[in-house]
Amino acid sequence: MKCGEGMRSFNICTIKFYYLIFCEIVFWQQLVGLPYQGSSYYQKCTDSETKQELLIGDVIQRRGRCIRAQCLGTLEIWEDSCQIPHLPGTCSQLPPPNEFLDYPDCCPLHECKSYEFNENGETVETLTYDHHGILKKQNIIKFLVVVDHQKRNPNDNVSARFNI
């Protein structure tokens, strides 16, 4: 039986039509990204430090401590803060350029230096890492030793250093 053949067919066709409209609305809401208006959408987390209420997905910056806090769907607060990475060698912590920047720009950098000496000179390598241990900058300085054999006494161990 097709739509339009009798009263019972009319009711089935109407139900199919409304179901199709409902599916279209759900499809377009998901495609456009409209927020879900159910009961969990309005649930809140309370940041224990600032006492600020956050909706699920909201993010705040905790100034002065370089921490970003976010309200999760489980109604828990997730905190991102500066980490001290495990780096090889001897490293020192550099202060951030501006402590009032938002996370992660307020995190300090870590600078690691290494030295290499040989008969030709000295090499100083400086590596700068972020708080995740990702290399941000590399600087290599090479000092060469030059000996002028024509003008100096062969028994003289005086040499000149050049910074390249």
Rank of each mutant, 00 (worst) to 15 (best):
M7G: 04
I77G: 07
C112M: 06
G89E: 08
Q30S: 08
Q29T: 07
I84A: 07
F100K: 13
G33R: 07
E122V: 02
T46V: 15
K136Y: 06
C91A: 05
L101T: 01
F27A: 12
E111K: 14
Q93Y: 00
G38H: 11
E111V: 12
A69I: 05
E24N: 08
E76A: 12
Q43T: 12
N118E: 10
N153R: 12
M7F: 12
C66Y: 05
N98V: 07
E49N: 06
I21Y: 09
I56Y: 05
I141P: 00
V145T: 09
P108Y: 07
R152N: 15
R8T: 11
P96W: 06
N118V: 00
Y18T: 15
V146C: 10
F27R: 09
N155P: 01
V26K: 08
W78V: 03
A160L: 12
R8D: 08
F117Y: 14
F10N: 08
I141R: 01
D156G: 05
N163L: 11
Q30A: 07
S92A: 07
E125T: 15
V145P: 01
L34D: 03
E49F: 09
C66S: 06
I21D: 01
K151Q: 09
S114M: 02
C23V: 11
C82T: 09
S40W: 13
M7V: 13
D80N: 15
I60W: 05
K44E: 15
N157A: 06
E119V: 13
Q61K: 04
T46K: 15
L87P: 13
P108C: 04
V32Y: 11
C71V: 04
K51P: 01
G6Y: 02
C107L: 04
F10A: 14
Y36T: 05
C13H: 06
D156T: 08
P85G: 03
D148L: 02
C91W: 01
T126Q: 08
G121T: 01
G73I: 03
Q93R: 10
P85Y: 02
K16T: 11
R65L: 06
R62Q: 13
S40I: 11
H149N: 14
M7L: 13
V32N: 04
C3R: 01
N98M: 02
L127A: 10
G33F: 12
L75N: 12
W78G: 10
D58W: 07
H110D: 00
C66I: 02
L101Y: 10
T74G: 08
C107E: 10
L72Y: 00
V124A: 03
P108I: 02
G133K: 00
R8C: 08
K16L: 14
N120L: 05
Q70R: 14
E125H: 02
T123I: 15
I164A: 03
Q61N: 14
F143A: 04
E5L: 12
R152I: 13
V26A: 09
E99R: 10
V124S: 03
D58A: 14
Q61I: 07
C71K: 07
E122M: 11
D47M: 04
V158L: 13
Q61L: 02
Y18P: 00
E116Y: 13
H131I: 02
F22E: 03
G133L: 02
Q37W: 10
E122K: 00
N157T: 13
T90Q: 12
F143N: 00
G4Y: 06
T46N: 12
E125Y: 00
L75T: 15
K151P: 00
